[in-house]
Structures are given as C-alpha cells and as structure tokens.
C-alpha cells in the first residue's frame, strides 16, 4: 500500500503527513521536558539549600558541548539546504558531520558522568544530582536517537535520493526538526543546570 502525502501537501492541513506527525511528536516532547523542567524548578525553590551548578559541574565542558550541539544543528540544516539545491554529495557530508558532532557531544557527556561516578556522585547522592542526571540522561537518550536516525539517512537510507529525491529531502527535513529540538532543549538545560 502506498503511504499518502509523503511528498505532496495534504489540502486540509497544508502539510505533508510526515511534517504534521513530527510536529505533533515535538509537541508531546515539549510537555515531557516541560514537566521535568517544572519539577526541577519545584525541587530547587523548595530546597533549603541548592548548590550552584558551576560549583558541582564543569562549565567549560558544558560550554564546549553547547558549541558542538549548535554546530551540529547548523550542519543539519545545511544538509537539507544542499538537498534543496540538488547536491546530494555535500548534503551527505553535512549529515555525517552532524552524526560526528553528536557522537562528540556524547563522548564529552560520558566523560562528565564517569568523573561524577568516580567521586561517588551518583543520582542518589543529592536532589541536585538526581534531577541533573534525569534531565541530561533523558536528553542524552534523545541525542542517541538522533544519531540513529541521521546515521541511517546518511548511510543506507541515502539510496532513496536516487529513487525518490523529494521524499528523501523531506525525511532529512523532518529528522532535522527533531534534531533542532534536541539542540533547543540543551539551550535551556545548559544555563539551568550549569550556570545558575
């Protein structure tokens, strides 16, 4: 069976089904992270004492990771733009760059985690660490998800460019919307957890 509205726009929504779908998913993601962010605020304002993020965590490493993630968002949108210009080779290069930057982000994150664990700073050690590991852990899972999708699109999934270039371009755009959201979440987590 043919999946409808993968390329052409559905008249009543003005969108392809994939784009409507990813935005509905992102709306649910806003609520998921919103609930946890709200929990963070509640825990923080109701705690008798709360450490400053910069006392417990490494601001330089997180700043580096912020730069990495923003750069990966740029390479992601560049990949889509190159496909729009009908240039699949640079598009794939940009997509692989996005995957590489995401992996670098995870390596830094794992280094941070292992440093905490070596000092016995597990989630159970304090409320601050509990919410820190919950928020960054969930975000990290999203980064892993992005690597899987973008890796597929840059690797075996790229074969679709030859059979159905428009649909492939839409797939990269939709994957990009997800990836920019992951970047957006980090933009708020970074100051909330590390800088305040």
């Amino acid at each position: 069976m043919q999946i409808p509205y993968t390329v052409e726009v559905r008249p009543d929504t003005g969108l392809s089904n994939a784009k409507l779908g990813i935005w509905l998913f992102l709306a649910s993601e806003v609520m998921l992270f919103g609930a946890l962010f709200s929990s963070y605020v509640l825990l923080r304002v109701s705690a008798p004492q709360w450490p400053h993020g910069y006392e417990e965590l490494s601001v330089p490493l997180a700043t580096f990771n912020t730069i990495i993630l923003i750069s990966s968002s740029v390479t992601m949108v560049m990949s889509w733009a190159q496909l729009k210009l009908k240039r699949p080779v640079p598009a794939r290069m940009y997509l692989w760059s996005t995957v590489a930057l995401a992996l670098l982000f995870l390596v830094v994150k794992l280094y941070e985690y292992s440093h905490h664990f070596a000092l016995g700073e597990y989630p159970r050690a304090s409320t601050f660490l509990a919410i820190y590991f919950t928020l960054t852990g969930l975000h990290g899972l999203h980064v892993i998800g992005g690597i899987a999708v973008n890796g597929y699109l840059a690797g075996p999934g790229a074969a679709m460019w030859r059979s159905d270039p428009e649909r492939y371009t839409n797939r990269v755009e939709v994957a990009g919307l997800y990836w920019h959201f992951v970047d957006l979440v980090w933009i708020f987590l970074f100051p909330a957890l590390y800088l305040l």
Binding site: S73, M76, V77, F181, D183, I187, F188
Partner: peptide, 14 residues
C-alpha cells in the same frame, strides 16, 4: 538569553 537562542533556532533552523 536562552529564550533568544531558542527562538533563533525555532524561527530559522525549524
């Protein structure tokens, strides 16, 4: 600052 950054990502990249 985070809202400005987030808005830029949403407005242009998304």
């Amino acid at each position: 600052v985070a809202t400005v950054k987030g808005s830029l990502v949403a407005a242009y990249f998304m």
